[in-house]
Amino acid sequence: MYTVSDVIQALDLTKTFGKHTAVDHISFSVREGEIFGFLGPNGAGKTTTTRMLTGVIPPNEGTALVLGFDICRSPVLAKQGFGVVPETSNAYTDLTAWQNLMLMGDLYGIPRGRSVDRASELLRVLGLLERKDQKVQAYSKGMKQRLILAMALLHEPGLLFLDEPTSGLDVQSTQMILSLLRDLNQAGTTIFLTTHNMEEANRLCHRVGIIRAGKIVALDAPEKLKVAIDRVHRLEVSFDREVPADALAGLDGVLSANRTGDKWQITAENRDAAIRSLVTFSREHNATIVTLNTLAPSLDDAFLRLTREDHP
């Protein structure tokens, strides 16, 4: 199940708080070079899982191999290779941005000259260079979050954990962070991203894992999840002339056809077969197709379906 190129391998991770099991024997792996989205409703155990993976809290059972090191047995070696943007922003507010970054450099054993170069570069990219000598106390939420990201990236980690990095930020800060993440990933950084934002996960992630009440309920590429969630597919088609309804409904792969305005709403068991029949149909009836849309279920739909209490 696991290969050498898995950067994170969670093995039966379990965390209980008193009688409450926050994370319940979850196993999954994250491959090198991918952006892995970790989704789930509030209280599902996302942050708890992230904290176990990053060695902040010890699991009650199970363990995780992160960058090839057992996070429980060789925490320092594992931590040396990844960066973390935690759920709550935690720069030292009594220090300036620059001092926070230098502290990170020292804690990761980076030579001072290198730290200085990296810090200047990151502050520039994240638009904080002018405010670098100001205490973090005076920073806005978005500025703090960008600083935290810079602090996580100072030592050029090959793996980055982010716990809801864009929650509560405006469009500009969000875009700045997301585009930086995309660039980093392009350059080879593996990213483990916890988020509530389906749109963000949909656009950014290669694969997503959905956790509900401490258990993984789905693990796949966003597109496949969306498709898997709805057995019945919907298509929308319109022709340049009138076509008989029963002819459409009788097509191979088509379950039903209903007219709304000038369009036909088609439900299909097999999207591919339905589209092929529609094309053949248009040729046979000399009816040009004006529009043809596949109405994909959104990741939101998939998410809601998968995280509903009654879902198996």
């Binding site: 925490p75 931590k79 973390v84 922003s89 935690n90 720069a91 804690l107 990761y108």
Partner: peptide
């Protein structure tokens, strides 16, 4: 929460 940051550092 700065302690959490230290805990995630090597």
């Amino acid at each position: 929460k700065t302690l959490e940051r230290l805990a995630s550092c090597p």
